[in-house]
């Protein structure tokens, strides 16, 4: 369970306040969506939770299953079960996708005191998961995200998620830059990972992703705060009327 309480965050260099008291709880097995206009702090929330540099937490807490996330290095948060699917996955020339995946899987196993996965078992596992996401052998061999199309990059994020089997998944605008078919493929990948023990936080601008990944709870974020929470119907309302009404009502 992810529990965020009264989270206040500033940009380290400028001191600009981005998050102004976020309260949010994502229970295991649930899918929460966060929608909101540009600049509302949605992506910042995902960065702060995963430990990106450049942000200062001035108040509040964020815990995953009772463990203080904010006190951990990014790799420790990952080992604790947090995963962020990036809005802009990073290209890493010269490092094969397969090498990257295996390094990540084994690093997390090691951090949890488990044995490394054997090369044969790893290969079997990655092939099986890749197949479901229509990721071919060539994409696995190529350097991480180099020369990947927008859709391939997002599918590669979901493949990493499937391999790492996190407890809490954050998807940061995973639908951006995707056509309808690519979005469906990504959504199917996410839905296949839905599980009673796993929570999801889906950040998106648009309702359309939520047609494919059906949320249990929808939050509207504006000016660094969650201003409204409701069921899936809230996303439909946004789609129909935009954010203006909600912002005024808040």
């Amino acid at each position: 369970m992810l529990e965020i309480k009264n989270l206040h965050v500033e940009l380290e260099e400028e001191g600009k306040k981005i998050l102004k008291g976020v309260d949010l709880t994502v229970e295991d097995g649930k899918v929460h969506a966060i929608m909101g206009p540009n600049g509302s702090g949605k992506s910042t929330l995902s960065y702060v939770l995963s430990g990106r540099q450049g942000y200062e937490v001035t108040d509040g807490t964020a815990e995953l299953d009772g463990a203080d996330l904010l006190d951990m290095d990014p790799e420790e948060r990952a080992a604790a079960g947090l995963f962020l699917a990036f809005q802009y996955p990073v290209e890493i020339p010269g490092v094969g996708n397969m090498t990257f995946l295996r390094t990540a899987v084994n690093a997390q196993r090691k951090a949890r005191g488990e044995e490394e996965i054997s090369a044969a078992d790893f290969l079997k596992l990655v092939r099986e998961k890749a197949k479901n996401l229509k990721i071919d052998a060539d994409m696995l061999k190529r350097p991480v995200n180099v020369g990947f199309s927008g859709g391939e990059k997002k599918r590669n994020e979901i493949l990493q998620m499937a391999m790492l089997e996190p407890k809490m998944c954050i998807l940061d605008e995973t639908d951006s830059g995707l056509d309808v078919d690519a979005m469906r493929l990504v959504a199917d990948g996410v839905n296949a990972l839905r599980d009673a023990g796993r929570g999801f936080l889906v950040i998106t601008h648009y309702q359309r992703l939520l047609d494919h990944i059906k949320p249990d709870v929808v939050h509207i974020m504006a000016d660094g705060r969650i201003i409204k929470t409701g069921g899936p119907e809230l996303a439909l309302e946004v789609e129909k009327n935009g954010y203006a009404d909600i912002l005024e009502g808040a």
Partner: peptide
């Protein structure tokens, strides 16, 4: 070292030293 790439690798659970090494190898690859 590219901080964004380093963060990306670390966010996947790769410890800082190992992630830095991977990025050095990536740099040398060409």
């Amino acid at each position: 070292i590219d901080e964004t790439a380093l963060y990306y690798l670390r966010s996947r659970g790769v410890p800082k030293k190992e992630a830095t090494d991977l990025l050095v190898l990536s740099f040398m690859a060409e």
